[in-house]
Nucleic acid binder design. Structure first.
Lengths: 238, 238
DNA sequence: CGTAGCCTTGAAGGTGATCAATGTTTGTGG
DNA sequence: CCACAAACATTGATCACCTTCAAGGCTACG
C-alpha cells in the first residue's frame, strides 16, 4: 500500500532485483533495464479486471510482475477461448508493438489481483526494437508460446480427463513458486474448459470424481493437487 | 533440368527476382540477399520425401522456393499431427537456429515435388541474427503462425464439416496462385484429418457428400472447390 | 437482501471415433 | 510390361464420450 506514495521511478526501482531475473532482461545491466522501462508505469488490476480489450488501439504493452492474466479471444458465437496464461516475467501484447496503429490481438483479464509494468509503445520502438538481444529474447518467448499451442494440438484427440490433468500440471509447474501442489492463482472450471475447448459441466464431472478419490482438493477457489503421481498415471494410461 | 549443370551460385541467382519478393527479404538489396544466402544450396525433395527429421541435429534451415511441406509432430501414441503447411516464402526451422546444438522441432515432409534453399546455421548466426530488420521479419512470420494456431483453437468446438471447409479455403487462399479454386498441392484426406485432429473416415464422409452435391471436385489427387459460396455458407450457418 | 459468479447433478442425444473389410490408384522392381 | 506392394479412398455398423439443456444450490459482495 505504500506504493502509491512513491514516484513511479522509485516504484520501479523497488522491483529491479526481481526484474533482472526475468528471461527478457537476461544479461541486461541495471541502466539498460531502466532504458527499456522508459515511461513505464505500474498498473494493478483486481480480480477479473480488464487490462486490455481485444481490438482496442495498442499504445502500450505490459510486463507481468505479480499474479496472472488470461489472454482471451472470442469465437464468432460469442464464447471465450483462452489462448495463454501469462504470469510474472511474461509480456503481453509486445508482439504487436512493431507495427504502427496496431490493435490488441487478445483481451487480457486478471486472475486474482495482479500487477504489471505498463510500457508505452514508443519505448518499444526506441529501445526494445533497437536492441537485437532483446528482440531475440522476445522471439524466444513467442516461440515457447507457439510450442505450447502445438502441444495442446497434439493432445486434442486425447480424452478430456487427460487434457485436464495436463493443464493442471502445466500450470502448477509454471506458477507454483515453492514446488508445492497448490496453484496460487484462482482458476475456475469454466476457465479450464475455455482453455481446453470444452464445457464447464464436463470439467466439473471429471474434477468432482478426482476430488472424491482424493487426487485433488479445491477449497476457497484454489486448486491443490494432492496426488500428482495418480494424475500423471491417468495421463499415461492407454 | 539444367539446374544441375550450373554452379550453386548461379542457380541461386536465377531465383533472385523471386526471392526479393518474399516477405523475409523485404527491402533487402541484392547484395544483402546474397550475404544472407551465404553457403546456401538448392535441395529438391520428391513427393513424400523427408526434408528434416524431428530431433535430428539442426545444422541448417530452409527457405521454401517451390511446392509445399507439412510440418509434423508425432503424438505419444504414434499418430501424426500436422502443425503447419509451409509454402514458398516460408522458412523451416529458422527459429531453432539461434541456439547452439539445437534439434529440429518438427519433421518436414514434402507434399509433391518441392524445392528449398538450404542455408547453413552459421550463415544464420553471422548474417541473419545480426540484422535486426531480418530478425523482426522472421518474428513476424512466427507471429502469423501462432495466430493461425490460435484460430484453429477457436474453431475446434465447431462441427467437423465447418473445420474441413475452413482448412480448404485457407489452403487455397495461401497456395492458389491464379485465384482459381484448385489447390496446386496434393493433399490427402488423411492429411486433412491429421491437421484437424480428426480421422480419415470422418473427413472422407464429409468430402464425399460435398462431391456428390457438386461443391468440390477431387480428381487425380488434387482438390478443387467448385462452389466456394456454398462452403462459406456451410461454415457460417448456425 | 438480492444479484452475480461459480459449482453441481441429471437426463437425453448426437457427433465423430473405432473397427473391419474392400476397392482403387500409384509406384517399383523383376 | 507385368506383378506386387504401398498408399489412398470408401462404406457400413457400432458405440463411447462429451455436449447440450435444465434446474438448483452455494458463496461473496455491494
Amino acid at each position: 500500500m505504500p506504493l502509491t506514495q512513491c514516484s513511479p521511478q522509485k516504484q520501479i526501482e523497488t522491483f529491479l532485483p526481481e526484474l533482472s531475473r526475468f528471461p527478457v532482461f537476461k544479461n541486461c545491466t541495471t541502466n539498460q533495464i531502466l532504458d527499456l522501462l522508459n515511461g513505464a508505469t505500474m498498473r494493478s488490476t483486481k480480480h477479473r479486471g480488464l487490462l486490455y480489450r481485444i481490438a482496442d488501439p495498442a499504445n502500450s504493452f505490459s510486463l507481468v510482475l505479480r499474479g496472472a492474466y488470461k489472454l482471451v479471444r472470442p469465437t464468432p458465437k460469442g464464447e471465450d477461448v483462452i489462448v495463454f496464461f501469462a504470469g510474472p516475467g511474461d509480456v503481453i501484447a509486445a508482439l504487436v508493438m512493431p507495427q504502427l496503429n496496431s490493435v490488441y490481438p487478445v483481451s487480457a483479464i486478471s486472475m486474482g489481483p495482479s500487477l504489471v509494468l505498463e510500457i508505452p509503445r514508443i519505448t518499444y520502438v526506441n529501445y526494445w526494437a533497437k536492441n537485437i538481444e532483446i528482440v531475440m529474447l522476445i522471439q524466444n518467448l513467442l516461440y515457447n508460446r507457439m510450442v505450447l499451442l502445438q502441444d495442446q494440438k497434439l493432445f486434442n484427440k486425447n480424452p478430456l480427463p487427460q487434457r485436464v490433468g495436463r493443464l493442471l500440471l502445466q500450470l502448477i509447474e509454471k506458477y507454483s513458486n515453492d514446488s508445492e501442489g497448490i496453484l496460487p492463482i484462482p482458476l475456475t472450471r469454466k476457465e479450464i474448459a475455455d482453455s481446453l475447448g470444452s464445457t464447464v459441466e464436463s470439467v466439473i464431472r471429471i474434477m468432482s470424481e478426482w476430488s472424491h478419490r482424493g487426487l485433488i482438493n479445491t477449497t476457497e477457489h484454489h486448486i491443490e493437487i494432492l496426488d500428482p503421481g495418480q494424475i500423471i498415471k491417468l495421463m499415461e494410461e492407454q
